[in-house]
Amino acid sequence: MTIFGLKNCDTCRKALKSCPSATLIDVRADGIADRMLEAALAEFGEILVNKRSTTWRNLDETARQSDPLALLRAHPSLMKRPLIEAEGKLYLGWTKETQAGLGVG
């Protein structure tokens, strides 16, 4: 299981604590592979872009209108977190549904 997020994100830390065998990929420090971003965008659409984040609020209107993939490539911390890949399935956020799908919580 791989958790894509930020090492300083409280929600990502909760997910990692509940799934101790998971690997955390810090998207700010390590980046995220294009194929993973593309798969996540195909699965979740524009909700993958966290429009409540500080990063989003600091973008100008032109940048906000950019293609979501280009935005996430340029600003990986703009991704809603955590993005979890487990056994070929993707989960977004640390919701009850995600926890149930992963068999934790």
Rank of each mutant, 00 (worst) to 15 (best):
A15H: 07
Q65E: 11
I47A: 07
E46Y: 13
V49D: 06
T62Q: 10
M36H: 12
R73C: 10
L48G: 07
H75V: 00
C12T: 02
D67H: 02
P76V: 03
L48D: 08
L24N: 04
W56C: 02
D30H: 15
K7R: 15
E46M: 13
N50M: 01
G31D: 03
P82T: 00
A74I: 07
T62S: 09
R64A: 00
L69H: 07
A15F: 05
I32A: 09
K51E: 15
P76G: 02
K14V: 01
I25V: 14
C19L: 14
L48S: 06
R57C: 08
A63W: 10
F44G: 03
I25E: 01
M79Q: 12
M1D: 05
D30T: 12
K51H: 12
D60S: 14
R81Q: 02
T23H: 08
T11V: 07
S66H: 10
L24D: 00
G45K: 14
L41D: 00
A63M: 14
T54I: 12
P76W: 04
E61L: 09
A39F: 00
L69V: 11
K17C: 05
E38W: 11
S21K: 13
K17N: 09
K51N: 13
T62I: 11
L6F: 09
M79Y: 09
K51D: 08
D34W: 15
A39Y: 00
K51L: 11
K7F: 11
W56I: 09
A39N: 10
R28P: 03
L48W: 06
D10S: 09
N58K: 13
L69G: 10
R73F: 08
D26H: 02
A74C: 08
K80P: 01
P76H: 04
L71F: 06
D60Y: 13
I3C: 01
I47M: 14
F4A: 04
D67Q: 04
E61M: 04
D67F: 01
D30N: 12
D30V: 11
R13F: 02
E43C: 04
M79E: 13
A74D: 09
N8A: 11
Q65F: 10
M79P: 03
N50A: 01
A74P: 01
S77I: 01
A22V: 05
D10E: 07
D34P: 02
L69R: 15
I25S: 02
G45V: 10
F4C: 06
T11L: 10
S53N: 06
R35N: 08
I47H: 11
S66C: 13
